[in-house]
């Protein structure tokens, strides 16, 4: 499973980078989202996979019984997902504003800081 996920992560990264390198600024945002998903999956997979055992201490027990999924990558990813959403919103609105000011959708036309 790890090997399969490794290729999925690689594929998502490749797609994300290809879109980020393109000219369309809309596709650039799509690329950023894909990169974010890929990064989350990378942390998740690199931490080791455990099937169907959430890191929860069962009722009556004092600690979780192995095997259980590693809680640390999960805590990292959880905040990353929500922050990713906030940053994506900001990026989208920024793109929208840029388009309205500059009138172009093409990153190759945005070569200076002056609008």
């Amino acid at each position: 499973m790890e090997i399969l996920l490794a290729f999925l992560i690689g594929g998502l990264y490749a797609a994300g980078f290809y879109l980020v390198l393109g000219r369309s600024i809309g596709k650039l945002i799509v690329g950023l989202v894909l990169l974010g998903q890929a990064a989350n999956l990378l942390i998740f997979t690199a931490g080791g996979l455990t099937r169907a055992h959430p890191p929860i201490v069962p009722e009556g027990a004092l600690e979780a019984q192995p095997p259980f999924a590693d809680p640390i990558p999960q805590a990292l990813i959880l905040t990353a997902i929500v922050i990713g959403f906030g940053v994506l919103a900001f990026a989208l609105v920024l793109v929208d504003r840029t388009f309205q000011r500059v009138g172009t959708y093409d990153t190759d036309d945005m070569t200076s800081t002056d609008a």
């Binding site: 992560i9 690689g10 990264y13 290809y18 890929a38 080791g48």
Partner: peptide, 24 residues
Amino acid sequence: LDASIALACGGLMTALVLTAVRVQ
């Protein structure tokens, strides 16, 4: 050019994950 760089990056990430899961 874009595609080959993107694929190279993707390949690097795959290799990275494969290396990382070995280290537990």
